[in-house]
Simulated assay, not measured.
Amino acid sequence: MKKLLFTSLLTISMLSACTTDEEKVSEQDHTQQDHTQQEPQSNENENATTETKSEDTVSSITQAEALKTIKEQLGTELAVVMPNNLPLTKGTFLTATTTGSDKQAEVLFLESKEYIPVNDVKLKNASNATPIAKLTVKLFDSIDEASEQIAYEDYSKNGGQQVPLGYNINGYQDAGAGSLWTGWNEGRWALAARTRTDNPAAGVDLAKQAVEYLESHTLPIPHENGMVHLDVYESGNLIVWQDGKLVYTLDSIKDPMKALAIATAFNQ
Rank of each mutant, 00 (worst) to 15 (best):
L74T: 02
I70K: 05
L94P: 00
T89A: 14
E77G: 15
K71R: 14
F93N: 12
P83R: 09
K68L: 11
V80P: 06
E77H: 14
G91E: 11
T92G: 06
L86R: 11
T95N: 03
G75W: 10
T76G: 06
T92M: 13
L67F: 03
P87Y: 02
T76I: 01
T89E: 12
I70A: 05
L74N: 05
L94C: 02
L88K: 04
T95W: 00
A79P: 12
G75C: 12
K90M: 03
N84D: 15
T95A: 06
V81I: 13
K90N: 08
A96M: 07
A96W: 00
T92V: 07
T95L: 07
A79R: 13
P83Q: 03
Q73I: 01
V81L: 13
V80W: 05
K68Y: 08
T92R: 10
T69W: 02
L86V: 13
E72M: 10
V80R: 08
T92P: 03
G75F: 08
K90W: 01
P87S: 07
A96N: 03
L94Y: 01
L67I: 01
L94N: 07
P83T: 07
G75V: 05
E72A: 15
P83I: 04
I70Y: 01
A96P: 07
V81Q: 14
G75M: 08
K68V: 00
G91S: 12
G91H: 11
L67V: 00
E72T: 11
V81C: 01
E77A: 15
A79M: 04
N84V: 10
I70L: 04
L74V: 04
A96F: 05
L67A: 11
T76K: 05
L74K: 05
L67T: 01
T69G: 06
G91V: 05
N85A: 14
E72D: 15
N84A: 12
K90V: 10
Q73N: 13
I70S: 06
T95I: 04
E72N: 14
